[in-house]
Design a protein around this nucleic acid. Structure first.
Lengths: 346, 346
DNA sequence: TTTAGCACTCAAAAGATTAGAGTGCTAAAA
DNA sequence: TTTTAGCACTCTAATCTTTTGAGTGCTAAA
């Protein structure tokens, strides 16, 4: 049963959260009245604060200190109090511009997205490369490099490219490789992994070898819950005072270097939210002990049903949601548009 | 004129540096005598320490504290006192094994090298992908993906691969693309950038367009001082006490996120040292204000005259050189061997 | 040349004092 | 009934003092 807040209580909660996010210091009744020219007295504010503490939205670090939002306080703020604004148009343009200026390369886009997110939000940014919902073969290329060594470039529908160097048992001329590649391209183009598994054995030994390798590689790709993880902005977090003090937050950063955990978290986002949808995960929401003091703002992007990825931001619970949320939303939309354009060959 | 140290002074300097690297605390005369069962008294040690301070190898944080090595002290330690050991054989095998197990993919090797270096040395590791001394065209592939969009895969001699998505002015069938690619391959294979610039214009418009893009891309690659930079182990540094205290070291980490600076530093290593050679850069040696309190151990690896990169470790000045140096050396040798094998198509 | 002995220094820990920011409560004012 | 002025009370953080002991440098004896 959710307690009902009076308008005035909401207003005060809003101001406390805002103020605390900005200053990092517990917020006192008097500060609030003075700074925001409230039409009632500090004593009134104190009464309301006491009520809000009672309801679990605020707490006091110690008896004679100001108030600090609780996890619940942040949640209420994000879901009911924050005014959802868009990113300033000018900024939108600047960012969009950067993407259209870079070469149309997924790797570059991801890196750019991570950098911009980190920079704009002053938190750690996370971006996964888009991943197809179903893996379909598109094209293979075999390039002889040195003697027995062959570079295999495998393209799957949606644009993901996998490179691999193979060592054959004996040197094979480029013409023969091209011929094999062409035969494979003809018979596999557009097929899903399942369909490919049902293909008959090849009579040509080399072709069969390559075929096996292709299947292996496709399987590897299909098994990954998400594409490569990009991140940026680690040093942003280092500046924040809560980071320097708390041992705990330093452990949280360890998580980032272990890419697997990260991947799972983002994969969950892909499952749980729809394209354009936004998830704000505050503290214990994450279900991850190490992230107890952190929050994440995550979104899914891509081409529904075809090619999707996740992106977002990880920062201290006391992050500027008002800035982070529009930024993450905008970035997700932007990437969605980019990939939509790329697929719909306008 | 370098002052001459007596054997006993050398011995004491050695012990002070070792002890300080291990404990992080200023080293007292008595500690040394007790811990290492010296056959002379603390007073004697104090006299020698005073001499070593006079010569600039040791200093005292304050009058009544033990001694701490100066930059010069570390340098003397590294160049004259440290016994250069190899990495334990077992560890060598474990590491080598990991490389031969991974698929023969440069990207994967680099990532693995960075991870292992960071893990073994508990510092930040840096690895640049190998970069050819001279860019030579090897192969181009054009793959139609969606409508007007084409994936161009450009392979240069040495194995570096560059992917790029192009948007043509109108859709072109795959056969035509293959044909163009084949013609380009025939006429450009093995040529350096200079040689390619002297080629006549193509009569075929599409071929000329692609040709221009290839030149652009080759130029871009040739201009880079080194390959992509990989790093790992940021969180290692976060644990060390000197990091938590000093604002300065936190700034040093900012450098890492600015990849360009890093690239320059590593490029310098490529210039200054020979394959297999090792550079130990202590404090102000780096010529970089932010790195005043750090040291780096860098090495060059690759195939001389063909394909070279740099790798190494960045940590606090008080890092375990005895552990770092053999690790960096071993890793450089290992990568050199890997690339040599890959090139000499055994 | 080495070392015991001792006076001296100084950082760090522990304790004591103070200041003041901020609260909760009560009782008066609106 | 709601708001607010007033005030006692609490508790942190800052400042200052004292104490402790680790460690030195110097001197003079071994």
């Amino acid at each position: 049963m959710m307690p009902v807040l009076s308008e005035r209580q909401k207003r005060i909660l809003l101001l406390v959260v805002r103020e605390y996010i900005e200053s990092g210091q517990p917020v006192a009744s008097q500060t609030l009245v003075r700074r925001y020219h409230l039409e009632f007295s500090p004593a009134t504010v104190r009464n309301e604060m006491a009520a809000l503490s009672e309801m679990g939205y605020l707490r006091q670090p110690h008896t004679s200190a100001g108030r600090v939002p609780t996890e619940e306080g942040y949640r209420f703020f994000v879901t009911h109090l924050m005014n959802q604004v868009e990113l300033p148009e000018e900024l939108q343009h600047t960012i969009t511009h950067q993407f259209y200026q870079s070469k149309a390369d997924v790797d570059e886009w991801m890196q750019l997205a991570a950098t911009i997110l980190a920079h704009q939000t002053r938190a750690v940014s996370l971006v996964t490369a888009p991943h197809p919902e179903q893996v379909r073969f598109k094209h293979v290329e075999l390039i002889s490099t040195q003697g027995r060594q062959v570079l295999m470039v495998l393209v799957i529908e949606g644009g993901e490219v996998s490179q691999q160097v193979l060592a054959l048992s004996e040197p094979v001329p480029q013409e023969r490789l091209s011929q094999v590649a062409q035969r494979l391209n003809q018979s596999l183009r557009g097929l899903t992994l399942e369909a490919i598994l049902n293909q008959p054995r090849r009579s040509d030994a080399l072709e069969q070898d390559i075929f096996t390798l292709i299947v292996q590689d496709l399987r590897r790709i299909a098994e990954q819950p998400a594409g490569e993880v990009y991140f940026d902005g680690l040093t942003n977090v280092l500046e924040s005072p809560e980071f320097i003090e708390s041992e705990e937050l330093r452990h949280a950063l360890r998580l980032l270097e272990e890419r697997t955990l990260l991947k799972n978290l983002l994969a969950r986002t892909v499952e749980q939210s729809h394209i354009g949808g936004l998830q704000v995960i505050i503290g214990s929401d994450a279900g991850w002990e190490e992230l107890r003091q952190c929050s994440m703002v995550l979104a899914r992007y891509g081409v529904p049903g075809m090619l999707t990825g996740a992106l977002g931001v990880l920062g201290p619970m006391r992050m500027s949601y008002a800035r982070t949320i529009p930024t993450v939303r905008f970035m997700a939309d932007l990437l969605s548009n980019l990939f939509n354009e790329q697929m719909s060959n306008l």
